[in-house]
């Protein structure tokens, strides 16, 4: 099973195995990783599962869709490596991916 490392804003790390196909959001929320709200439940329509992807992994992800872009754009604290974790499905290629959680979700 591929794993993902979530790093909370305060530095706390959570390394979690996830099923292929589950989104990083689902992996985080079903393992009680704090810092991801996911109000809409994975519909790419609230932007409260915002993550900052470690630079080494940014290029390995499929680019954000137009919908994800428009939702990310609502966030005044958006960074170049900002993504919505509900839009990133786990896969063997992403085994070991590192993502940082922002201080707040909007």
């Amino acid at each position: 099973m591929p794993s993902v490392k979530f790093i909370e804003h305060n530095g706390t790390e959570h390394v979690i195995d996830g099923n292929n196909g589950d989104s990083l959001m689902v992996i985080a929320t079903s393992n009680l990783v704090p810092g991801i709200d996911a109000d809409c439940g994975g519909e790419c329509s609230c932007a409260t599962c915002h993550i900052l992807v470690d630079d080494a992994w940014v290029g390995k992800l499929a680019p954000a869709t137009e919908t994800e872009e428009s939702m990310l754009d609502l966030n005044p604290d958006r960074e170049p490596n900002s993504r919505l974790s509900c839009q990133i499905p786990m896969s063997d290629e992403l085994d070991g991916i590192v993502v940082n959680l922002p201080e707040f979700q909007y």
Partner: peptide
């Protein structure tokens, strides 16, 4: 928080928090 009062999508309430 899984409710519709703030709307979803690009018009979602900006003052929700």
């Amino acid at each position: 928080r899984h409710h519709l009062s703030f709307g979803f999508g690009i018009h979602r309430c900006m003052g929700n928090r």
